[in-house]
């Protein structure tokens, strides 16, 4: 069995500033060794440890999609020691990636269902992975209606803006983009994510699941909206975050009750979250 602490060596292939305030960058990595990409087979919703030798590791959701080949992509907010080093890296630099880790959005169960995605701020990475996966020609017919509510403070703070605009033009996905306050040239919704969700999102029923990722404040006000719309707690899917080290359930710090966010999660239904201590 493979040593779970040992990262795959990767080369930084591309770095792009992701938001207007430059606090987020999107990194594309290419595996150095043949065969490692195949071993890194992942599903939308999983995360990986980005590993910089001599600095440390950070758990980050995988933003690329399983249907995209030849690279893996992560969008990272500059916040601490490792993310700052990452932001200072140049294309061509060598580092490591460990994973894929954690569970994923329950794709088998979601087949044949309508999907509502609610995202806020920079918690849109694994949601992007999910949307690209569902929109892939080989997969689109497996799902019913797809609705996406995605909000950010300003147009320049929306991640993957080019793709968002492309998706707006399609008729097999209903995009509901929103920003906090009116801005010049903005032709979409204005308002916080929860009220826009209330206004635009489809009603909840047995065949409709909501995947929700965003800052705590957005989650707090979106959950009552979803309840009002008729989504039951086992039809609301969330992705939790906690401080992590190992990422595969051994080091002990990310526990919420008997569940470990890294291994039993990060994806939980609201029903499951409600049965654990609120220690995330």
């Amino acid at each position: 069995m493979q040593n779970p602490y040992l990262p795959y060596p990767v080369r930084v292939d591309d770095i792009e500033v992701a938001t207007e305030d430059k606090s987020l960058k999107t990194f594309k990595f290419v595996f150095l060794n043949d065969g490692d990409e195949k071993k890194f087979a992942y599903k939308a919703g999983q995360f990986a440890e980005l590993s910089i030798p001599g600095v440390g590791e950070i758990p980050i959701g995988i933003a690329s999609s399983p249907v995209e080949k030849g690279f893996v992509m992560f969008t990272v907010f500059r916040a601490g020691v490792v993310t700052t080093h990452l932001h200072n890296m140049k294309t061509g630099n060598i580092m490591g990636i460990r994973g894929p880790l954690g569970n994923w959005y329950p794709w088998d169960m979601l087949e044949g269902k309508n999907i509502l995605i609610v995202g806020g701020g920079f918690a849109f990475t694994t949601l992007r992975s999910s949307i690209v996966y569902m929109l892939d020609p080989a997969n689109r017919s497996k799902f019913g209606n797809i609705d996406v509510v995605y909000g950010a403070r300003t147009p320049g703070m929306l991640l993957y803006k080019d793709e968002l605009i492309e998706w707006e033009k399609r008729d097999d996905i209903n995009m509901h983009l929103t920003i906090d306050a009116p801005a010049e040239g903005w032709n979409y919704n204005v308002g916080f994510t929860p009220p826009i969700t209330e206004e635009k999102a489809p009603k909840g029923d047995e065949n409709t699941y909501a995947i929700v990722c965003g800052p705590p404040i957005m989650i707090k006000f979106t959950l009552p909206v979803l309840e009002k719309l008729g989504y039951s707690n086992d039809h609301i899917i969330m992705s939790l975050e906690n401080r992590m080290k190992c990422g595969f359930g051994m080091c002990g710090r990310c526990g919420i009750g008997k569940e470990l966010v890294c291994k039993d999660g990060p994806v939980f239904t609201l029903d499951q979250v409600n049965q654990t201590p609120k220690e995330y």
């Binding site: 440390g56 080290k245 051994m250 002990g252």
Partner: peptide, 10 residues
């Protein structure tokens, strides 16, 4: 007790 931390040292 088994909880552990991971750190790099150069």
């Amino acid at each position: 007790c088994w909880c552990f931390d991971i750190q790099d040292e150069v």
